[in-house]
């Protein structure tokens, strides 16, 4: 990482700390912001957060590893999460997943070579009456069919 990048990241994290406070209870929201902007929370970022909140880096890492939506290693530019829980499962999640896997040429859990998509399973998204459901980044899509799912992916930049 370049020094300039490091400095920019430090400044960014400092601004979150300014916004949410330097108490440990601000941790979750600070991590959210970093995750949202960078799609992952890097080693350096985690140490900066630890420094500013006056906790140990391993504690930050531990919290990140606990939560399914926070990650320490980079993922694709767009994150596709498909609900795997029973109501969506019964409405044809499997077909949707197969279509997506075929379209992108990867298996669930993987990232496309061009780094455009990472596809993952998620547990119930709270859209069970409109299953199968999936989320692309922070937008959700419901009543999917294999065709619809593929079409939606094609619209993503």
């Amino acid at each position: 990482m370049l020094v300039v990048e490091k400095n920019a990241l430090s400044e960014e994290i400092e601004s979150y700390v300014e916004k949410y406070g330097n108490d440990r209870s601000a941790l979750l929201m600070i991590l959210h912001e970093i995750q949202k902007k960078h799609r992952h929370i890097s080693e350096f970022a985690q140490q900066e957060v630890a420094r500013l909140l006056n906790i140990h880096p391993v504690e930050v890492y531990s919290v990140i590893s606990f939560f399914a939506f926070l990650n320490s290693n980079p993922k694709g530019r767009n994150l596709v999460r498909i609900c795997q829980t029973i109501s969506c499962d019964m409405k044809g999640k499997k077909q949707v997943v197969q279509a997506i896997e075929r379209e992108l040429g990867i298996k669930i859990g993987e990232t496309t070579k061009d780094n455009k998509f990472t596809v993952e399973y998620a547990n119930c998204l709270g859209l069970c009456d409109m299953g199968p459901a999936m989320a692309i980044n922070d937008q959700v899509y419901v009543n999917l069919t294999p065709e619809k799912a593929v079409e939606l992916l094609s619209k993503v930049k």
Partner: peptide, 18 residues
């Protein structure tokens, strides 16, 4: 502050930073 529980559920293990 070297050790903490990492990951969750059945994958939980005691680990260090990264």
């Amino acid at each position: 502050g070297v050790l903490e529980a990492i990951d969750r559920g059945h994958n939980t293990h005691i680990g260090t930073f990264f």
